[in-house]
Design a binder for these strands. Structure first.
Lengths: 127, 127
DNA sequence: TGTTGACCTTCCCGTTAGTGGAAACATTAA
DNA sequence: TTAATGTTTCCACTAACGGGAAGGTCAACA
């Protein structure tokens, strides 16, 4: 199948599929006589795999690593679990950061009267 | 004072201070005869203001907006509160996203034995 | 057969918010 | 005088694509 068909089946934009081929993340099966990229279900499966991993905010490099585990019939599940656990820790760290951000800002917003007068604890805090 | 002094006082890297001048976010007070940027406490205050706002993940454009409110003695606190509230909503949205991400991934990690065998629900889920 | 329209290719530029480095000029201390 | 910083501009790079141009290909329809 052509690239747009593979894109549709994988749920990715065509541009992205081409990009993944360019950076050697998911290569096309081959090329047609005219130079069109051709895709089979194997590549589509990999594209879907990458899309799902990206939805979990795995970076492209992490996707590359996961993909090699995915393709390796002899990988151990421990390797995969390690990667996923690492990602989980990153997410939890980000959650904590976001939480303090939220609390501080919420406190400032709550303290601000929000009327026509220029007095504003938010500006005061910043400035 | 010179740029590195302003950088130190504002808590920003010199490169960033120069960048903010380039994009017209915080201009230097002027230039010395040799062409060095000069800074006064006024600019340092603005730099600190921007640094704090950036720590709250306000974008540069939002900083620009906030800065104009900051510089406008006649602004109403309502304008500032609106901006901050918008940002707060964004943060809360991001928190929800991160939460479902976390829960799904945690579930997968928990379900994975993580031993030497290749069976892995994480890979199964992705692939 | 011609041609229209949809699809494909490569290439380059833009995004965010800077960071890193190079070449050249300025200032300061020994 | 020389060496070590400090500063300038400019250019390239980051992540992960998206937009659009210029040109080649393919299928359908009159």
């Amino acid at each position: 199948m052509n690239i747009s068909q593979a894109a549709k089946m994988s749920g990715l934009p065509t541009k992205t599929v081409r990009y993944y081929a360019d950076i050697n993340l998911v290569q096309s099966q081959g090329r047609s006589k005219a130079g069109y990229r051709t895709y089979s279900e194997t590549e589509v499966r990999k594209l879907i795999f990458v899309r799902r991993a990206r939805e979990f905010d795995f970076t492209i490099e992490e996707c590359r690593e996961l993909l090699s585990l995915f393709e390796d019939r002899d990988r151990s599940s421990a390797d995969v679990k390690n990667l996923a656990t690492k990602r989980l820790k990153q997410i939890e760290k980000k959650q904590h950061e976001l939480q303090s951000l939220h609390d501080e800002l919420a406190h400032l917003v709550q303290a601000c009267r929000g009327d026509h007068r220029p007095d504003c604890p938010i500006i005061d805090y910043f400035g």
